[in-house]
Design a protein around this nucleic acid. Structure first.
Length: 122
DNA sequence: AACTTGACGAGGG
DNA sequence: CCCCTCGCCAAGT
């Protein structure tokens, strides 16, 4: 059976996304790292495609701090507007400050320099 | 089975 | 900062 049609596989992604607080975001790659074996940024993106209303899908953006939902069934700029309504600020190039807005689940923390890598707690 | 296309990401120029 | 290449891996044709 296809992976993204596997309910368990999808639910693990959604469980984490549902924990992202208002005003915070995570990237596809981070989610993949947190979820571990079997998950990649691409598959996470695929799963998000099928998110239902119980999932704050707008809080998942790409590693550059931008929204990647321009050309799909989602109206242009909807994601950014939803996030702005949650208090997130985007510059004229559609980028927000990940350093300030990135959220990490319990058990993970960012490395010294960037916010893009995660390490498991000892 | 081959080839293309992504709600991706890192690295190089 | 922008653009391109690769690696990634599931889906659609």
């Amino acid at each position: 059976m296809n992976i993204v049609n596997n309910k368990r596989y999808r639910e693990r992604v959604f469980e984490v996304v549902r924990q992202i607080p208002v005003g915070k975001v995570m990237t596809y790659g981070q989610l993949a790292m947190v979820l571990g074996e079997g998950y990649t940024a691409r598959t996470v993106g695929y799963v998000m495609h099928g998110a239902d209303a119980s999932v704050p899908w707008q809080r998942v953006i790409n590693s550059q701090g931008k929204c990647s939902t321009g050309r799909l069934s989602i109206p242009i700029n909807l994601q950014q507007e939803l996030l702005e309504a949650e208090g997130i600020v985007f510059n004229e190039k559609g980028k927000c400050d990940l350093r300030e807005r990135q959220w990490f689940p319990d058990g993970f923390w960012p490395d010294e320099d960037g916010q893009t890598s995660l390490f498991e707690q000892k």
